[in-house]
């Protein structure tokens, strides 16, 4: 007899299923739980929307508008150029 899945376990498995394939028997048990549980179904929709918006906004999220001057400082720029020149010539 397998242990009954509760909502806490289901929410974890729903997240885990985004990162690794679950065994078919587990997918079947999850599917059954989701048919009966509106709360877990809503959690699942939320994390799917979350994944989708984060991926969709990837380019915008890669720039931090809190830093207006997202440019290398002159000192860092000079240092890196120098290092590249010395190591590149080696």
């Amino acid at each position: 007899m397998t242990e009954m899945l509760n909502c806490q376990k289901v929410s974890f498995l729903l997240s885990q299923s985004l990162d690794t394939p679950l065994p078919w028997i587990m997918r079947a048990r999850l599917g059954l739980h989701l048919l009966m549980c509106r709360r877990c179904a809503a959690f699942r929709r939320q994390i799917l929307v979350l994944t989708s918006v984060v991926r969709g906004a990837a380019a915008a999220l890669a720039v931090d508008p809190g830093h207006d001057t997202a440019a290398l400082s002159p000192a860092a720029r000079a240092r890196i150029k120098e290092l590249l020149a010395s190591q590149g010539a080696a």
């Binding site: 909502c7 806490q8 709360r39 809503a42 929709r45 939320q46 929307v49 989708s52 969709g56």
Partner: peptide, 15 residues
Amino acid sequence: AGRWRNSPENWGETP
């Protein structure tokens, strides 16, 4: 018992 204390809401908006 591992049940939600507060239900996740339906966000109602698409990505």
